[in-house]
Amino acid sequence: MKRSKLGRADLLTELLYLTPQLLLFVGLTLLPFVVSIPIVFTDKVDYLDTETSFIWFQNFVNVFRPPIVNSFLPALLRTVVFTGVNYFTTFLFAVPIALVMYELAQTLLKQVFFVIVYLPLMISGVGLGMIITMLFSQDTGSLNLLLLRLGILESAIDIQSPDVMFMLPFAVGWRYAGQNMALILAGLLTIPAQSIEAAIIDGANYVQRLVRIYIPQIMSSVLVVTIFTLIGSFGMVDELIGLGGLTSNRNAEFLSIVILKFGFGGSGESRPGALSEGVAINLIVYVPLLIVGILILRKQIRRQLDT
């Protein structure tokens, strides 16, 4: 009896410490899912719309019909292409830098390099979009103008064209190079020194060590980077706003921008669709993504809990 009272008191104290943040987390991260479910079955036009009626699954049908499909599918295609290229460039930047950092001894140059490689992370997403515009705007882009002057380019790169799907991943890879490098480097640092020593003594060259030791060892980090890249690419907003996705640049209209326009796109003709249709797009795209994320993350969580 006494023990159970003590246990209850402990539990109450624990809840006192847990509840404030947990309430906020549940209320502002998980509850929004629940709130969005009734909206998707109504014809709610915007946040001020109070006269709504249930239309059941009509919103899911509407997003695949004109005029919504005309903005939804191209945006989905742009997002998917961007995600693919972004996945490639993420590793293009992170893996070589991590491997070089792993091989080199601690020198002043290495320290300075660390400082510089993280510097782009200080730029905001919208700032990154603006920097891409500053460098590659067709008329005013500094690098465009330089490359044209040097004769390296025959015609200027145009960030208002589909080129943006390929330009943006490089800029994003540059911005997150430090963060992703750290994740890969963390994997490399777990390799037992004896394994490498033994491989060197056995005459294994760098490529053999890379294939047989380094790459298998960083697979767990690759998984983490994959989750971040996948979710980050589909949810990217700030960079696209910086590229004019909300205003004049149609090619920077990825899924997230379409959803943002459906939710906050003003009223009347300027609104591309109803809020409820935006929520339907949200559920169609992100729920499958969430399931994939949970499946990948489950293993990681189990590993965390076991350690």
Binding site: G232, N282, L289, L290, L297, Q300
Partner: peptide, 16 residues
Amino acid sequence: LLQTIIPPIMILLPLY
């Protein structure tokens, strides 16, 4: 830990 896989844009409309 679930939060890592929830893009902010996904919850933005109901969060508002």
